[in-house]
Amino acid sequence: MNCQEFEEIVVEAARGRSAEGGLPAGGLAHAETCADCAARLAGQRALSAGLRALAGSMAEQQAPGRVESALRSAFRGQTALPGRKPAGTRRWYGWAALAAACLILGVVTVGRVLSGPRAPQARPRPAVPAERPGRAVLAEARPAPAPPKLRRQEQSSRAAARRTVRRVRQPLGGEEQEAEFVPLLYGSAPTPLDGGQVVRLRLPPSALAALGLPVNMSRTEAVQADVLFAEDGMARAIRFLR
C-alpha cells in the first residue's frame, strides 16, 4: 500500500466504518514504515475520539418541555378549525362546482346563440336575504345593488335606469307577470342564500330541456326568464315570465 491508497482508507478506518472495522493489514504495515501516514492515522483517531466525546456529551440533550406543550396546543387548535376537511373531499367539491359552472355557462351561451342578434336583457334584480331556507327564500327575492358594470350602463342612460327600477319594483301586475322561482338543484338540498343577483335572459326551449325543465319542444321561440345567481356564480333558481 502506498501513501495515496492509505489516505483513501484512513478516515473510514479511524471512524471504525471500514469493511474490516479498522485499518486493514496492508494499512497497518504501511503506517509502521511511513511516519507521515502514521501521524495522519493518529490525528484521525484522536478526532474520532473527540467527536465521540462531543456526541456523548450531547446525547441526552432534548428540546425543552414547553416546545411539546406549544405544539400540542397548536395541534388541538388546528384540528378544531371548522370546515377543515380531508383534501379528497375538498377536491370533490371543487370539481363539482366547476362542472356545475360549466353547465350553466353552456346553457347561457346556447341561449344567446339561439336567441339571434338580440342581446340578453340583463338587469339588476333583487338579491335574496338569508332568512328562510328553501323555496320560501327563493320566492322572496328583494332588490340588490347592481354590479359596477350594470351601474355604469344605468348612469349612461337615466331613462333606461328609471324603466329598470320601475320594472323591478312592480314584479307582478305590470307588463310581465312573473311566476315563482323554481330551484335549480345540483344534487343538494336548497339552502338559504346570503345574496345574489337575478339576471333576465331569453332561453331557447333546448336550454330549458337541458336544465331538466318541462318544455314544449314544438315551440321555437325563446322564453323569457329570470335566473337567480348566487354569489358563487352558480344559478340557483329560475322563474318564467308570462
Binding site: 502514521a38 501521524a39 495522519r40 493518529a42 484522536a46 478526532l47 475520539a49 473527540g50 466525546a53 462531543l54
Partner: peptide, 26 residues
C-alpha cells in the same frame, strides 16, 4: 484527556476541554 502525541492536537486536554475544543471547531 486523550492520549497525548505530537500529532494529536487533543492529547493534552481533559475530556471537558476536548469536548469544548471539538465543539468550537465544528
Amino acid at each position: 484527556g486523550l492520549p497525548a502525541s505530537a500529532d494529536n492536537p487533543l492529547g493534552d486536554l481533559t475530556r471537558q476541554e476536548t469536548v469544548e475544543a471539538v465543539r468550537r471547531a465544528v
